[in-house]
C-alpha cells in the first residue's frame, strides 16, 4: 500500500503533497493542493529529517554517495527517498512490506515522465524558493500512475 507522496525543492520547501486513503482514493480530491498550517509543520519536520539523515550519511561515509537513494522504516511505514541532480527530493511512504528497491524504477518514471512533463514544462511553475506545484494535472497523473503499481493495491480494503 502506498500512503502518501511528498516532493520538496532544493530549498527545503514542500512543493507537492498527496495522500491516499484505504480505498486508494486521493484524500483531497482532484483539485490543486494547498498546504494547511498543520501540514506545514509536518513538512518542516520531514525536510529537517531528510537534511539530517543526508548529513549523517555523508559525514559517516568516506567515499562520495552513489546515487543518494535510501529508505528507512518504522513498524508502521517505510519511507522511500529519491533525489534528483537538480535538488528535488521525493519521499513516498508505503507499508513496511514494500521491498527497499521496489520504488527505484517508479521514482525514475515519476521524475522523467510525470514531473518533467507536468511541472517543469508548466509556465506557472518556477524553480524558486516558495513556488509550489499548482497544476492539478500533476496530482491526477501521478495518482493514475501510482494506482496501477502492484504495491499500491496490496492490502487495500477493496478494489
Amino acid at each position: 500500500m502506498i500512503f502518501s507522496c511528498s516532493i520538496f525543492n532544493r530549498y527545503g520547501t514542500c512543493i507537492f503533497h498527496d495522500e491516499y486513503d484505504k480505498k486508494g482514493r486521493r484524500v483531497r480530491g482532484d483539485g490543486a493542493w494547498v498546504p494547511t498550517a498543520r501540514e506545514d509543520d509536518s513538512f518542516k519536520l520531514t525536510a529537517g529529517l531528510i537534511a539530517s539523515v543526508k548529513y549523517f550519511i555523508t559525514s559517516m561515509s568516506k567515499s562520495a554517495l552513489s546515487d543518494g537513494f535510501f529508505t528507512f522504516q518504522t513498524s508502521a511505514y517505510k519511507c522511500h527517498y529519491f533525489e534528483t541532480q537538480t535538488g528535488y527530493r521525493l519521499a513516498i511512504l508505503t507499508e513496511p512490506g514494500v521491498p527497499m528497491n521496489a520504488m527505484r524504477g517508479p521514482f525514475q518514471t515519476i521524475y522523467s515522465s510525470i514531473f518533467v512533463e507536468k511541472v517543469c514544462k508548466d509556465p506557472a511553475y518556477q524553480h524558486s524558493k516558495h513556488c509550489v506545484v499548482t497544476n492539478p494535472a500533476f496530482g491526477q497523473t501521478l495518482h493514475r500512475y501510482l494506482a496501477q503499481l502492484p504495491m499500491f493495491k496490496s492490502n487495500r480494503e477493496d478494489k
Partner: peptide, 17 residues
C-alpha cells in the same frame, strides 16, 4: 535552461558530478 535541465537529466540519465 533552468527548466530544460530536468528534462535533460531525466531523459539522458547523464551524471554531472
Amino acid at each position: 535552461g533552468v527548466r530544460l535541465v530536468d528534462e535533460f537529466l531525466a531523459k539522458s540519465q547523464v551524471q554531472c558530478r
